[in-house]
Write a protein that binds this DNA or RNA. Sequence first.
DNA 1: GATGATGGTGATAGCTTCTAACTAGCGTGG
DNA 2: CCACGCTAGTTAGAAGCTATCACCATCATC
Lengths: 215, 215
Amino acid sequence: MTGTPRERYRTQVREEVKERAWEQIAVAGASALSLNAIAKQLGMSGPALYRYFGSRDELITELIRDAYRSLADAMRAAQATGADLAGLAHAMRRWAVEDPQRYFLIYGTPVPGYHAPDDTTVISSEIMATVLDACGPAQAGPATAFDGHLERHREWARGHPAPTATLHWALSFWTRLHGVLSLELAGHFAGMGFDPALLFAAELDRLLDRPDPAT
Amino acid sequence: MTGTPRERYRTQVREEVKERAWEQIAVAGASALSLNAIAKQLGMSGPALYRYFGSRDELITELIRDAYRSLADAMRAAQATGADLAGLAHAMRRWAVEDPQRYFLIYGTPVPGYHAPDDTTVISSEIMATVLDACGPAQAGPATAFDGHLERHREWARGHPAPTATLHWALSFWTRLHGVLSLELAGHFAGMGFDPALLFAAELDRLLDRPDPAT
DNA sequence: GATGATGGTGATAGCTTCTAACTAGCGTGG
DNA sequence: CCACGCTAGTTAGAAGCTATCACCATCATC
């Protein structure tokens, strides 16, 4: 809405490019993303896209940034509606299942040479802060040897007042949910018969120290 | 050693191709694997490789198979030397850290169209069986609602006599260790300061119900 | 209205996978 | 022993990709 018509057109084309890029990624993965194909879909030919994105990597970087932003927003939105930690976990799973390749763009196989831009780590710690905010005093767990080590490496919490044991707990929240979720999204449970959503819920219950929600 | 000289030469070239492929994957990831580059390294030009591998996908499939086989062997070898569950976990981590891209070839971002060959699921359940074999009666955890669901979907255990609660426990072993391990290998802990190996050990301790190994 | 920034074009280089046609040579059956 | 056949290798080429370059049109502003 703001800016000169030139600028508005420019951002609109950029958005449309990213739109098509997401479509391609959803059906064939990020490695199959083709600038040529996107250009053809937009009715313009090949090199025109380089006016809007300097390279394929630059476009993908932009998409990674947007994916991070989208995940952080989904978590914050869940928190805003009064969701507890279980609610945050399910919001995260919903966001991931909605577009698995978008999840893998963040948490999938890294390309050895590639370095994510700095602001993604900012967003990443924003997500972490959302989890920490939702943690009550109950989320601590008994002190472990790792907690002592973690006490000396609290930098990543960016001054969040949560006790170190809670930081450890939040790390477990992240790693465990990512473990079950990424295996589900990658299809590793496909031929095994059980319902991945139930395994996710069970893992979450164990994490929240609710040993048996059924009885 | 067996077979005609022709066959021996053929398998030797195939092995050499895979060797170079692993080198390329280790430094640039599987997506950057180039048959042309491999052929050039072997001193032959381009299309000659298609005598040995029908396509790029076929080569990658072969590599995935070998990676699965290698992981299963590493786990079985650890078990053969009397390793307990913690030993299995550390064997798995060693194997992964040794060549992260090899780990990601198995557990990383899946290409939407691609379907892994059937024998990989066989090897996968062999790995699962190794874990189940190392489980004592202690590894069960309290019965959960998920265990009831899992009771009706035991097919993937392929007749292993372990009780259902132990199957659930083995799933947690898999998902939790994969969670912390894959995030480490992907570099998501890079800027956070703490030692990923210690987080892995801590997560393993919690999994094995050893709340505080330090005190 | 002239001028300069901007958007788009086709041509081109260099890379990729993969197919097709063809040749050199090894190994075995007659 | 020799001829045939299979195999491994070659070059050429199609189709695709990223990315750069040179050029042209068009729009916005002075």
